[in-house]
Protein backbone atom coordinates (compact mmCIF):
# COMPACT_ATOMS: atom_id res chain seq x y z
CA UNK A 1 0.00 0.00 0.00
CA UNK A 2 1.23 3.40 -0.95
CA UNK A 3 -0.05 5.32 2.01
CA UNK A 4 -1.08 4.47 5.53
CA UNK A 5 -4.85 4.25 5.86
CA UNK A 6 -6.20 7.51 7.22
CA UNK A 7 -9.52 7.48 9.02
CA UNK A 8 -11.92 10.37 8.71
CA UNK A 9 -14.80 10.64 11.13
CA UNK A 10 -17.63 13.12 11.39
CA UNK A 11 -19.18 13.44 14.84
CA UNK A 12 -21.20 16.53 15.76
CA UNK A 13 -19.23 18.66 18.23
CA UNK A 14 -22.16 19.26 20.52
CA UNK A 15 -25.53 17.54 20.89
CA UNK A 16 -28.54 17.76 23.19
CA UNK A 17 -29.22 14.98 25.73
CA UNK A 18 -31.36 12.26 24.20
CA UNK A 19 -30.62 13.37 20.65
CA UNK A 20 -30.09 10.60 18.12
CA UNK A 21 -27.42 11.60 15.64
CA UNK A 22 -25.55 10.05 12.75
CA UNK A 23 -21.84 9.31 12.82
CA UNK A 24 -20.13 9.06 9.45
CA UNK A 25 -16.78 7.35 9.01
CA UNK A 26 -14.46 6.86 6.07
CA UNK A 27 -11.03 5.29 5.87
CA UNK A 28 -8.66 5.13 2.94
CA UNK A 29 -7.94 1.48 2.20
CA UNK A 30 -7.84 -0.44 -1.07
CA UNK A 31 -9.85 -3.41 0.35
CA UNK A 32 -8.14 -5.95 -1.90
CA UNK A 33 -10.84 -8.59 -2.25
CA UNK A 34 -8.69 -11.64 -3.02
CA UNK A 35 -10.79 -12.21 -6.14
CA UNK A 36 -8.72 -10.20 -8.61
CA UNK A 37 -5.95 -11.54 -10.78
CA UNK A 38 -2.86 -9.59 -11.77
CA UNK A 39 -1.51 -9.40 -15.33
CA UNK A 40 0.34 -12.72 -14.95
CA UNK A 41 -2.88 -14.44 -13.92
CA UNK A 42 -1.98 -14.83 -10.26
CA UNK A 43 -4.63 -14.11 -7.67
CA UNK A 44 -3.90 -10.90 -5.77
CA UNK A 45 -3.98 -11.92 -2.09
CA UNK A 46 -6.83 -10.66 0.04
CA UNK A 47 -6.12 -7.67 2.28
CA UNK A 48 -9.15 -5.93 3.68
CA UNK A 49 -10.28 -4.27 6.86
CA UNK A 50 -12.48 -7.00 8.29
CA UNK A 51 -13.91 -5.24 11.31
CA UNK A 52 -15.00 -1.79 12.39
CA UNK A 53 -15.74 -1.17 16.07
CA UNK A 54 -17.19 1.97 17.65
CA UNK A 55 -16.80 2.45 21.38
CA UNK A 56 -18.02 5.22 23.63
CA UNK A 57 -16.20 5.72 26.94
CA UNK A 58 -14.75 2.22 26.54
CA UNK A 59 -18.07 0.49 25.90
CA UNK A 60 -18.75 -1.06 22.50
CA UNK A 61 -21.82 0.50 20.92
CA UNK A 62 -21.65 -0.62 17.30
CA UNK A 63 -19.75 -3.20 15.28
CA UNK A 64 -19.55 -4.03 11.60
CA UNK A 65 -17.93 -7.15 10.15
CA UNK A 66 -16.86 -6.36 6.63
CA UNK A 67 -16.48 -8.90 3.85
CA UNK A 68 -14.46 -8.50 0.64
CA UNK A 69 -17.64 -7.16 -0.99
CA UNK A 70 -17.15 -3.83 0.78
CA UNK A 71 -15.90 -1.12 -1.57
CA UNK A 72 -12.44 0.41 -1.47
CA UNK A 73 -12.11 3.35 0.93
CA UNK A 74 -14.89 1.90 3.06
CA UNK A 75 -17.61 4.17 4.33
CA UNK A 76 -19.68 3.35 7.36
CA UNK A 77 -22.35 5.37 9.03
CA UNK A 78 -24.53 4.54 12.01
CA UNK A 79 -26.49 6.25 14.78
CA UNK A 80 -25.89 6.98 18.42
CA UNK A 81 -28.14 8.32 21.16
CA UNK A 82 -26.50 11.03 23.26
CA UNK A 83 -26.56 10.45 27.01
CA UNK A 84 -23.41 11.97 28.43
CA UNK A 85 -20.26 13.71 27.25
CA UNK A 86 -17.31 11.52 26.50
CA UNK A 87 -15.05 10.15 23.84
CA UNK A 88 -15.60 7.82 20.92
CA UNK A 89 -12.92 5.34 19.94
CA UNK A 90 -13.25 4.00 16.41
CA UNK A 91 -11.09 1.03 15.48
CA UNK A 92 -10.57 -0.50 12.06
CA UNK A 93 -8.97 -3.96 12.09
CA UNK A 94 -6.88 -4.94 9.10
CA UNK A 95 -6.32 -8.51 7.84
CA UNK A 96 -2.60 -8.02 8.48
CA UNK A 97 -3.26 -7.49 12.20
CA UNK A 98 -2.83 -3.75 12.36
CA UNK A 99 -5.43 -1.47 13.95
CA UNK A 100 -6.25 2.01 12.75
CA UNK A 101 -7.73 4.16 15.49
CA UNK A 102 -9.52 7.48 15.63
CA UNK A 103 -10.69 9.19 18.82
CA UNK A 104 -13.39 11.86 18.77
CA UNK A 105 -14.81 13.88 21.63
CA UNK A 106 -18.53 14.39 22.12
CA UNK A 107 -20.06 17.14 24.23
CA UNK A 108 -23.61 16.70 25.46
CA UNK A 109 -25.23 19.91 26.66
CA UNK A 110 -28.81 21.11 26.85
Amino acid sequence: MATKPTPRVRVPAQVKPGEIFEIKTLISHEMESGQRKDSSGKVVPRKIINKFVAQFNGKTVFEADWNPAISANPYQSFFYKAVESGEFTFTWKDDDGSDYVSKNKLTVAA
Binding site: T60, V61, S71, Q76, F78, F79, Y80, K81
Partner: peptide
Protein backbone atom coordinates in the same frame (compact mmCIF):
# COMPACT_ATOMS: atom_id res chain seq x y z
CA UNK B 1 -23.72 -5.32 11.98
CA UNK B 2 -24.03 -5.63 15.72
CA UNK B 3 -26.25 -2.98 17.27
CA UNK B 4 -26.73 -2.07 20.92
CA UNK B 5 -29.55 -0.11 22.59
CA UNK B 6 -27.07 2.79 22.84
CA UNK B 7 -27.41 3.31 19.09
CA UNK B 8 -30.88 4.77 19.52
CA UNK B 9 -31.74 3.78 15.96
CA UNK B 10 -30.94 0.55 14.10
CA UNK B 11 -29.69 2.11 10.92
CA UNK B 12 -26.38 1.86 9.10
CA UNK B 13 -25.01 2.68 5.67
CA UNK B 14 -22.00 1.49 3.75
CA UNK B 15 -20.90 0.93 0.15
Amino acid sequence: YKFTPACGKASASTR
